[in-house]
Design a protein around this nucleic acid. Structure first.
Ligand SMILES: [Mn+2]
Ligand SMILES: [Mn+2]
Ligand SMILES: [Zn+2]
Ligand SMILES: [Zn+2]
Lengths: 140, 140
DNA sequence: AGATAAATGATAATCATTTGCAAGAAGGTG
DNA sequence: CACCTTCTTGCAAATGATTATCATTTATCT
């Protein structure tokens, strides 16, 4: 969860350490909630005016492969990224009004395991997100 | 579930009946599994060489609003569409190798209800899809 | 049939993401 | 440290999926 650890891990995978990569890692670790590529780009740009979108995307993809980052989507047209190490495996309550993404720790894992077994399906991943209106947005 | 019923329903909602709309409805009802916009476009084009993508998308959106079609996504960059009336509410086992989308009837609905209550969250929708390798693709 | 409003197709636009490539920087080597 | 190789970067352009614009066509109502 520390930036240094992540960078060391990348180094271990044979990747070079660059200013840009450090910035992306910092941005990801700094955010408590899933962030869009644009959000990460903006955060990084505060420290390095010249950082580019291709670098953001390439680095995020690399971090996903290194299992440092999880890539999510909630039904819109874009992907969201969050640190995979901040907390344990979880899902979200996604508010369609304000966009809030509240983590929830429950997961239908037994259900998944049972269904996979029934179908001799090898599970690699799963999507589970609850969409609706958050408490705050319900009061108009 | 019959094309006629769906068209009557659209008529009831004040929509006009067109050749193109019939084709899209037929294409949706003909497919057993979720289809991409492109797939539906291809199917329709076999009957009407001149049908266009904008019409496909507009019609699908209309059918989603009429609750005749469900719009899904499985982690890729595109949406998938399937008839909402063919069978009861369900989810899928999605093979990342061959793209197969096998329906499964289980749904973590109690879990969703419980979690929503705990957070005073108003549920409007949910995503639940299991991703992995299907039985067939496991044997190489 | 004629009027009216809705629907269509061609085309261009949009949005998020990816690619190609020349120039720049990291990290090993002597 | 200087040098070399290879990896990374930024820019510009490309891509893929979907949506918008708008002139033309068509369904439906009278
Ligand atoms: Mn989260
Ligand atoms: Mn289905
Ligand atoms: Zn909200
Ligand atoms: Zn398969």
């Amino acid at each position: 969860m520390e930036t240094e650890q992540v960078l060391a891990r990348l180094r271990g995978l044979g990747r070079r350490l660059t200013r840009q990569r450090s910035l992306v890692v910092e941005a990801i670790l700094a955010g408590e909630r899933p962030q869009s590529a644009e959000g990460i780009y903006q955060r990084c740009r505060e420290k390095d005016r010249g950082i580019s979108y291709p670098t953001i995307y390439r680095t995020l993809e690399m971090l996903v492969e290194a299992e440092v980052v999880r890539k999510l989507h909630f039904g819109g047209s874009k992907y969201w990224y969050e640190a995979a190490w901040q907390r344990e495996h979880h899902h979200h309550l996604v508010c369609l009004e304000c966009g809030a993404k509240e983590p929830i720790m429950v997961c239908p894992r037994e259900l998944i395991a049972r269904e996979a077994q029934r179908n001799q399906f090898k599970v690699l991943d799963h999507q589970f997100e609850i969409l609706g209106i958050c408490k705050d947005c319900q009061g108009r």
